[in-house]
Amino acid sequence: MSVEGTGRTVRCLVAKVGLDGHDRGAHVIARAFRDAGFEVVYSGLHRAPEEIVQAAVQEDVDVLGISILSGAHNTLVPKVIDGLKEYGAFEDTLILVGGIIPEDDVTELKALGVAEVFGPGTPMSETIEFVRNNAPERE
């Protein structure tokens, strides 16, 4: 699936940040994104925020999906966002978070620049459609 108007395939990084070792959801979403026609890079487990930023910049991704179930989302996600800003990649990257995130924290994450937070049980079609409708257009 290409970014509308560019012919460029949507590039996604599915990332596991911190010490969270639960990666089933990340694998499921990575496969669903791939099956939807997106290019997908998976970070692997236990990545530091700096490693996620480096991978997002080096892979020139349109979408960064952060999967986190450890409860450290209010610490780790802002570090990733700050890193993307340092590299000038924040404005060109759609940031998604998946996991068990309390509603009050969802509001805070969105205020920091997370486009959407997807909880357990979200239909894959909903996440894919969100990416299709919101992936940044760039050349």
Rank of each mutant, 00 (worst) to 15 (best):
S2I: 13
V3M: 12
E4F: 10
G7K: 14
R8Q: 15
T9W: 13
V10R: 03
L13M: 14
A15W: 11
G18S: 14
G18P: 11
L19T: 09
D20L: 11
G21K: 12
H22L: 09
G25N: 04
I29V: 11
F33D: 10
F33A: 08
F33C: 05
R34W: 02
A36G: 11
A36L: 12
A36P: 07
G37T: 11
F38T: 08
S43I: 02
G44L: 09
L45C: 12
H46Q: 09
H46W: 14
H46Y: 12
P49C: 13
P49N: 06
E50H: 02
E50S: 08
E51W: 03
Q54E: 10
A55Q: 15
A55F: 13
V57H: 05
Q58P: 05
E59M: 00
D60I: 00
V61K: 07
D62L: 00
I66N: 02
S67F: 05
I68S: 15
I68D: 06
L69Y: 05
N74W: 06
T75F: 15
T75G: 06
P78D: 04
I81L: 14
G83Y: 01
G83T: 00
K85R: 14
G88Q: 05
A89M: 14
F90C: 05
D92Q: 09
V97Q: 03
I100G: 00
I101E: 03
D104H: 08
D105K: 03
T107N: 01
E108N: 14
A111H: 06
L112C: 00
F118G: 02
F118C: 04
G119S: 09
G119M: 10
M124V: 07
M124W: 11
S125P: 02
E126W: 04
I128G: 09
F130Y: 15
F130R: 01
V131T: 00
R132K: 08
R132Q: 06
R132M: 08
N133G: 01
A135L: 03
P136G: 10
P136L: 12
P136Q: 10
P136K: 14
E139F: 00
